[in-house]
Amino acid sequence: MSFGLTPSQTVGPFFSHALTWLDGPDVVPESEPGAFWLRGRVFDGAGEPVPDALVESWQASPEGRFDHPDDPRGAVSGFRGYGRSATDDEGRWGIRTVLPGRVPGVDGRLQAPHIDLSVFARGLLDRVVTRVYFAGQPANAEDPVLSALSSDRRETLVAAVAQDGYVFDIRLQGERETVFFSV
């Protein structure tokens, strides 16, 4: 007997017992010097909020190092750099974090401070991955990834300054679709 390939399925539904992250949206504690909120909303192709998405963040420490064996400069312990936030009924998500340091790209050039985000949501066959850069950072002008994009596409990767940190909306499709990366 032979069986055919298993058909592709969309991500989800999510079962909260399997996705619980004890620290939730806290990459750093509230008392961490320089801590701020990175908040936003996830929108579908029709511009409607996605109430059942999951946003995960991964970033370097303020010194530009990862607590991971693949850090080309050697792993540094003490900064996890990971957070997870489910969206609410209005598609809102948030991560409490700190500004990451600059890290070298594959060509060795330093990249502007950024946070990698993975988004899981209904209707997606796999996660989508993007980056968040921060408005007002001088290094944005020389970042190799941002520099490779047209100005209208570059805007979709830059978080705006907010009262308690930064705002970064994620548009899965449609007008002003966020730039996503193949990883």
Results as ranks from 00 to 15, higher is better:
T20D: 09
P104D: 03
G81P: 03
R154E: 07
S85E: 09
P72A: 01
S151G: 08
L54P: 00
P100A: 07
F79H: 15
D126H: 14
E177C: 05
G101W: 08
V27I: 15
G94L: 12
L149F: 03
D116F: 13
P113K: 09
G91C: 03
D143V: 08
G64S: 11
A18H: 11
S85R: 02
F43W: 14
S61V: 01
G105D: 14
L149N: 02
D44G: 14
Y133R: 00
Q173G: 10
N140M: 03
E177M: 06
Q173M: 07
L99T: 11
P62M: 03
E90V: 02
A53M: 07
A35L: 00
G4I: 07
T6E: 15
D107F: 03
D169Q: 06
S147F: 07
D89Q: 08
S2L: 12
T130N: 01
V161R: 14
L110G: 04
V55D: 13
G12P: 02
Q173V: 02
D52C: 07
D52P: 02
T130I: 00
G101R: 12
D71F: 05
G4N: 10
D107S: 07
D44K: 12
V128S: 12
T87N: 04
F14V: 15
S31I: 06
V11A: 10
G94H: 10
A53R: 03
D152T: 11
P33K: 05
F180E: 00
I115G: 01
F134V: 00
A135V: 00
I115Q: 03
